Structure formats: C-alpha cells, structure tokens
Amino acid sequence: TEDEKKIQELLKRANGDVSKAEKLAQSQGNEELARRLREYANK
C-alpha cells in the first residue's frame, strides 16, 4: 500500500531504526504515519 511504501522509505532513511523513523514521521507532522510505523514494527 501507499502507507507501507512511506513506512519503508522512512525506515530506509532511519537505517531500519523504528524509533528514529517514528520521530522522522512526527517531525513531518505525520502522527498517523508515526502510529502506523509503531504498529508495523510490532508485527
């Protein structure tokens, strides 16, 4: 999905570090994506 692409892109930029990727999403003002990242990471 589009969200998964965004999540994978963020994870790439954060070198696979979920908490960093989450902070990136939040810094972009994207709380929804940050929440999805957390769920994605907890799979």
Rank of each mutant, 00 (worst) to 15 (best):
E32N: 07
R38F: 03
N30Q: 10
G16I: 02
A25T: 01
R35I: 07
R36Y: 05
Y40K: 06
Q28G: 06
A21V: 03
E31W: 14
L24Y: 07
E2N: 10
S19A: 12
E9K: 03
L24E: 07
K23S: 08
A34T: 04
L10C: 08
K5V: 10
K6P: 04
R13I: 14
E9W: 02
N42E: 15
A25V: 03
S27M: 14
S27L: 14
K20R: 11
D3E: 14
K6N: 08
L33I: 06
Y40I: 13
V18I: 13
K43W: 09
K23Q: 13
K43A: 14
N30S: 07
T1I: 12
K5I: 10
V18L: 09
A41V: 13
L37S: 00
K20L: 15
A34P: 00
Q26W: 07
Q8V: 12
L37E: 01
R35M: 08
D3A: 09
K5F: 11
E32P: 04
R35L: 08
A25P: 00
K6T: 12
I7F: 10
K12M: 12
K20M: 13
E2S: 11
N42Y: 08
D3P: 06
Q28T: 10
R38S: 05
S19F: 08
G16N: 06
Q26L: 15
R38W: 03
E39C: 06
A25R: 00
L10H: 04
K5E: 10
E22W: 04
R35G: 05
G29P: 02
L24I: 12
Q26D: 05
S27E: 15
A41S: 07
K5P: 06
K6L: 14
Q28Y: 08
E4Y: 14
A25S: 01
A34W: 02
E39F: 02
E22R: 05
E32H: 07
V18E: 02
V18S: 05
K12V: 11
E32R: 06
E32T: 06
A14Q: 02
A14T: 11
I7D: 01
L33N: 01
Q8Y: 10
R38D: 04
D17L: 03
A25Q: 02
V18M: 06
T1K: 11
